[in-house]
Write a protein that binds this DNA or RNA. Structure first.
Lengths: 191, 191
DNA sequence: ACATTTAACTAACACTTGTTAGTTTGTTCA
DNA sequence: TGAACAAACTAACAAGTGTTAGTTAAATGT
């Protein structure tokens, strides 16, 4: 068991993400965070540079993980429907593993300062890649010819909100969830 | 033109909702709000009781509007698919008319204090009504027999996120948007 | 054994927070 | 004209904010 145990910095970021999910970035104080860990607020600064920096670490690492996933999917030679399935699996996987961080990504990104532009670029690029897949599917006849913006919005907001919903279900089987979502998002719900 | 002009209290709530959308409830100070209106922070208290109270007004009035809409839809004798269509129209209408308030409803509800329990009851009841419609549709064969929880989550998170997406489009035709969403959410995107 | 490093601590800082008190100004109406 | 009121103002408050400085105690490496 070479279980490399968590560093204090990692613990701070992890606990911060949990608190940020519950109350939002602005409502969590460094004293709240310190108390949740069991030390004094000043001691946090032996491990992190600033409150800002914690938020940066949480959000940017997740955003980059999504970007990497999308790049990999883009460059594969799968069909558009298959690519969409892989995107769904990507979101289910990352969201399952980062329930707290995903809340910050969705709700607290506007409090990024230095990293705000970088984050927004990643987000816009991701959405452009997503839209390109849909348009390709429309062109090839795989996907119904409806407004790609509305399709993307619908699918992507569902996927981005998974962090709200996953913790409410006791049986978090990622494969099964991805499969059910794939059916509902692609094929719809009517018989 | 008997255009009953906005009271100062209404203006405060309206401007607050806009600021809450941009930065979140906790990050908006009473001085920010006062400056956006053009008065001093202390003057706000001639019109409102507290910062809390502004949030209550924004969120509870919207939540009750949704509840009324759902009650009306529930008691109609439409088919399940038709009821779903009406729910989509309800969300598009309320979201179009309350872009800023919807952001608070989605992101700042946890900062409700006295009204938190009441809000959560409205929300749970709404979701139960929604789920009941889906289950009825499954039983009657109108809707595909997949997990109703996942279906509800998927549709409802899309509808709840409309406030993010509507302002990005210049042509905000609610009827057309509701129609497109209806197609995508009910019939899916594959051909 | 001793020097170094790590990571906790206490104390304090400069500033911001929501809110209250008391006052002033302009408008409304008898 | 003058009393009453609405709604702005200034000043201040007590509490809380992120963060720094300086100190101490335990662990580590030579």
């Amino acid at each position: 068991m070479s279980m490399k145990s968590e560093t204090r910095q990692e613990e701070i970021v992890r606990v911060a993400a949990k608190l940020f999910k519950e109350k939002g970035y602005s409502a969590v104080t460094m004293r709240d965070l310190a108390k949740a860990i069991g030390i004094k607020a000043a001691s946090l600064y032996n491990h992190i540079n600033s409150k800002q920096d914690i938020l940066n670490k949480i959000i940017i690492s997740l955003a980059e993980e999504f970007t990497e996933g999308m790049t990999s999917i883009q460059s594969s030679d799968a069909s558009c429907i298959e690519k969409l399935k892989k995107i769904i699996e990507l979101h289910v996987r990352i969201s399952s593993q980062n329930i707290y961080g995903m809340a910050s990504l969705n709700n607290d990104w506007m409090h990024l300062e230095d990293k705000l532009n970088y984050y927004q670029k990643l987000r816009i690029d991701y959405e452009n890649d997503f839209r390109a897949i849909l348009k390709e599917g429309i062109a090839s006849g795989e996907i119904v010819d409806t407004k790609p913006d509305v399709m993307m919005f619908s699918i992507l907001t569902t996927l981005r909100s998974l962090y709200i919903w996953i913790p409410k279900k006791e049986d978090i089987n990622p494969e099964e969830l991805a499969h059910t979502l794939n059916q509902i998002l692609i094929k719809g719900i009517n018989k």
